[in-house]
Design a protein around this nucleic acid. Sequence first.
DNA 1: TCACCCATGTGAAAATTTTAACATACGCCG
DNA 2: CGGCGTATGTTAAAATTTTCACATGGGTGA
Lengths: 220, 220
Amino acid sequence: MARRKKYKFPKTTIERLSYYFRALEDLSKRGIDTVSSEALGGKLNIKSSQIRKDLSYFGDFGKRGMGYDVKYLLKELKYILGLDREWAVVIVGAGHIGAAMANYDSFEKRGFNIAAIFDNDEKKIGKEINGTPILPYDNIDDFVKQNKIEMAIIAVPAAAAQAVADKLVESGVTAILNFAPVAVQLDENVRCLSVDLTTKLEALAYYMSYSQDKLWKIYS
Amino acid sequence: MARRKKYKFPKTTIERLSYYFRALEDLSKRGIDTVSSEALGGKLNIKSSQIRKDLSYFGDFGKRGMGYDVKYLLKELKYILGLDREWAVVIVGAGHIGAAMANYDSFEKRGFNIAAIFDNDEKKIGKEINGTPILPYDNIDDFVKQNKIEMAIIAVPAAAAQAVADKLVESGVTAILNFAPVAVQLDENVRCLSVDLTTKLEALAYYMSYSQDKLWKIYS
DNA sequence: TCACCCATGTGAAAATTTTAACATACGCCG
DNA sequence: CGGCGTATGTTAAAATTTTCACATGGGTGA
């Protein structure tokens, strides 16, 4: 088990660590060696004390008076986030969202290898998206087992999502990123996160309707 | 200003209202007239007391001993979320994510009308995606002004996102949904939410690496 | 070597959010 | 028409998360 000082910390810390990671990558790319929590926070609209506390849950990564060594912190965050290894992923659904995910090259860069895309549309099967083959949905069980796939991205219509999720879990998948706009019910040892695209627009619509409410936690 | 009982409530309430809205739509479609907070919570993995509290910030929508009238609550939520009107939206970037957004029919259903897609790739300009024209990026300023566009979806590479956001805001856009993996700096009266696709996979990777940590707030 | 500057790491306080518990009100049924 | 079962709306407590404030320790330069 990786480095960890405390056994309890906010759920939101993990999400922020991802943001720190990306901001640090950017700094590194620009040849910046050292950064203070103040400077990093300015870049991300996050308070410096928040950053220091988040990092403090996992270790002492900074040098007092100096700040954080960008490359070193990147290495540590990579380790903490589980990005120091490769993850085998499948996409279910070769529609527009599935295709967009297959074309999203940042995934590969982070160690998420899209092994295959599954669909049951005869016209799509046999083709490729961004070099990844589209295979028949009926073969998904064997494929997941044989290739020891751990993660799946669900990009099918809402009505099909639960059945797809069940099948994936039965085959051995233990983490799911769900784009279908529906609440999937799963065993609690399966990790599932949803990305809901309309929800975000709805939140914007709300905040525009009530202009006195300030938008929060933007990180963006 | 729409109905509101209290002037302060959790930021997360708005997001949950969207989930309630969608679950209620599903119930309505299936001919169910009435639902209790307990039943709705079971569908969404949210505690019934949370639902009652969320709704209580905005009004008294239920009947004691009976639960909530599905159609009535839908109508109220629609109003609260600002979905009782049409929103004019543009997409910037006709890449895979932009295209997926343009093809995402749920947007139209919710009143988000995609008026145009902007790109500066000559090969794409003049074409259509799902009936929406792709226009030259250079025309975006005039278009936004003439069509009174209020919302924009940014689906361009990270390096271009800030400049695009600035231009949009200058033209009059006041709400942005940002898919570029970068923190955009904006005036505080502009609403901006980000959807970060790698962040979600990274969170999954983290939770798979530390199997003792349960995943939270799934709603899915 | 020592004094000074600076930014971290942290403990405690403040703020926010969730959960529990229950009094209240509605409708049904006898 | 009155009692009973039920599920709301709300108040208070618990839990969580953020922010503040500052003691601590590393580096630098005289």
